[in-house]
Design a protein around this nucleic acid. Structure first.
Lengths: 254, 254
DNA sequence: CGCTGTCTTGAGTACGATCAAGTACGGTGG
DNA sequence: CCACCGTACTTGATCGTACTCAAGACAGCG
């Protein structure tokens, strides 16, 4: 339960070189700077952030980047790709806690206890940034914008989790899930109307507290109702309004 | 959806008087200073916090202290009593989102959108502190301790919500709920072995996504099994170990 | 002492889980 | 290129937990 891995990365001394050599590998040159911690940061803060980053590039699908129990060294920001967080219970059943898209922060709940509460795995090819937490707290002293943004990112993670605690039907859950993914992709400059789900049916089921078979059945029914077109991971939103009204009970409470 | 109430209080100019007159009504003199924002704050920060507080005393049971849609003016800390947050969906069904004990913060998820996402009601006689958010962000610039504590409070709220998103049985949920309340009361210097539940069965059911009848049935069964003694709101924990092992699947994942 | 709301207990039902087959796809090797 | 295999997904049948509906018990209160 206590492998001292953190997010694995090239040797530490290469860090500053990387940052200095490759301007794309900074907060300032990041695709999702407008969603992530850099939002609203002034020039000085941005530069400090750039030097704080540990970038882990070229992460491949199924790569486990954090193990439960790893010491919490810093928050992990998704730079590209999609990641999932999960635990295994004693019976070996997997519980998926969240899916993370570019600009989103992983590891917020590790702050309190000092070690990660779950495993993190890549669902895609992607890249991550590790943000040393102590340093982040320190530089946030000088920037109202950064402090507020950190709170905002916390609040949005809270909102993501909160709706799933409610007592909703399989249809409501799946409709809300599809709309949520669609919107988040859209925010990130991707097509929110037609997209590829990076996760498996059983991941979705676990995330929504439904059996894999139920996920499959409901998606098939949505397709029969002409609300979506779905073929394996490929999804097209045909009647988002119908989905919205199916998910009404969830949507209106957030 | 937009009544400009915030937490209702005496007129603003009386604030400083109150703070200056009554030393008990400061962070420094608070029973739960060791759990709330004041934790780890130095003298200077503590004094700033004292001047930031708006205390709302003598809140009576069933009093609605925040309405959904109220503009977010500040975080609300429970000073004494117990409060619940909830929404109503279109059908009038109530969804309980959380129960808050002394030292816990209400309104974290209002930060992002700028208005409260749910109603807040008192379940007890109690008192609240409103902490102006802008001012809090401002004074947190000078205190690493305060900044970290705010993050920690966020993280613990996240942990509270997260376990309820999982797919657990009624027994697991209720066992975990009882243990959670018991522990939180204990942390606050109250008896964690024998206590009074401040909320109704239907509140518990809504919070755990169970029907009122199920809550009642499971509690009766726990009593028959000699795990607890329960009579209306009065609960005694007889075999907490049995509850722990019943809630194992939940407890091990946090 | 009866009224009211909350809680408990009972009986039947439904939604989604589980068990079980069958199908499509992607990868591998001949 | 195609045959084979393993995995992921889909579809069907049955089952079980927790919900719903309904009635009764209990406490608090006028």
């Amino acid at each position: 339960m206590n492998r001292p891995s953190g997010i694995d990365r090239p040797a530490r001394q290469s860090r500053t070189e990387q940052v200095q050599l490759d301007t794309q590998q900074r907060c300032s040159g990041c695709d999702v700077g407008h969603l992530c911690v850099a939002t609203g940061a002034d020039e000085t803060t941005l530069e400090k952030l750039d030097h704080l980053l540990e970038i882990r590039d070229g992460v491949t699908p199924s790569r486990v980047v954090v193990k439960r129990g790893d010491p919490f060294q810093g928050l992990i920001a998704v730079r590209s790709g999609c990641f999932k967080t999960y635990t295994h219970d004693r019976d070996g059943r997997e519980h998926v806690l969240g899916f993370f898209l570019p600009g989103e922060l992983i590891g917020l709940d590790a702050i309190e206890r000092g070690f990660h509460q779950y495993d993190v795995i890549a669902l895609d090819h992607g890249a991550l940034c590790e943000l040393d937490f102590e340093a982040l707290v320190e530089i946030s002293a000088c920037s109202d914008g950064l402090r507020k943004q950190l709170f905002r990112l916390f609040a949005s993670r809270l909102a993501d989790v909160e709706w799933r605690t409610g007592d909703y039907t399989a249809d409501e859950r799946l409709a809300a899930f599809l709309l949520d993914i669609s919107e988040r992709l859209h925010q990130r400059g991707r097509d929110g109307q037609r997209f590829e789900l990076p996760m498996s049916r059983s991941d979705i089921g676990s995330y929504l507290s439904l059996a894999t078979e139920t996920v499959s059945r409901v998606l098939s029914r949505f397709q029969k109702q002409q609300w979506i077109a779905v073929r394996r991971k490929q999804v097209s939103m045909i009647a988002p309004d119908a989905l919205s009204s199916a998910a009404e009970a969830i949507l209106e409470s957030r």
